[in-house]
Design a protein around this nucleic acid. Structure first.
Lengths: 138, 138
DNA sequence: TACTATTCCTATCTTTTTGGTAGGTTTTAT
DNA sequence: ATAAAACCTACCAAAAAGATAGGAATAGTA
């Protein structure tokens, strides 16, 4: 795989939702401004995240988005898959069955496991800790 | 990063050189036929591998390529870098300094370490073992 | 009811990357 | 001399990435 701008935008958006109070929808416009994401592009990403079951939306004026479940239940891999489809390091191998291909597959699996191991909650916790440390330094 | 066809071709080519007797050059044409790689494309890849210091070449009629050092001294990461330049999971992050970007960087480092941990010798050993097992099954 | 702000759907567009091809030069064994 | 190989440079087509655009559906509010 490759962490494209789109994937990073998706994670940033989910992260932004995780940081804002539960049950209070956040508008695409807000996220776009805070994270410097092109609004029309972000809209498409949010729709994909919705289809992937990661966010809920409220339509109409003063609508917005919320997480569909708690940040501890959302993994980095989920978010990436929602916008990228199946995650692969090797798209279509050129020598199927070869040892080279096998080894790449093994490494791919390990990478996926790693992405699975990180939750959005983890990111939030780390941010709070980082901000805490930063505030001591003033 | 992403394991492109080009990268896989490069590893397959190096692997092919590792399998053939030392100090006996192998022609691009041979590698191309054995691994089903478009010859003209492979030629370019071999030149990059040479510039990367991984292979030596013998020019002129009945020339060819050899590994520049033993397979145990060549790592998967070396081969990939020779043809792809610097390996990155996140090309240019969209939110530098953010926790999201930091976590992706950490995972990238781990992936690079993993690619560093595999040598071409490892691939050769595994192939011999696999072939051994296969031959028992006849 | 009209207006406005928002989500949502579909299409299009531009740039970059990928995966080659092509023509020709240099080198060397025979 | 010839042929076969490495090597160099340029080009090209398809796919992916990164948006932008037009407008429909929905809902809060004056």
């Amino acid at each position: 795989m490759k962490i494209t701008a789109k994937v990073e935008y998706a994670v940033l958006a989910i992260f932004e939702l995780a940081l804002s109070p539960e049950d209070r929808q956040v508008q695409a416009r807000e996220i776009a401004e805070r994270q410097r994401i092109p609004l029309r592009f972000l809209e498409q990403i949010l729709i994909q995240l919705k289809k992937g079951g990661l966010v809920k939306s409220v339509r109409g004026a003063s609508g917005g988005y919320l997480l569909a479940r708690g940040p501890a239940m959302i993994r980095l891999k989920d978010v990436m898959e929602a916008v990228e489809g199946e995650l692969t390091l090797v798209d279509r191998t050129v020598a199927p069955g070869s040892i080279v291909s096998t080894v790449f597959s093994e490494i791919e699996s390990e990478l996926l496991d790693r992405l699975q191991s990180v939750t959005i909650q983890d990111l939030v916790v780390r941010k709070l800790r980082d901000d805490g440390i930063a505030s001591y330094q003033i």
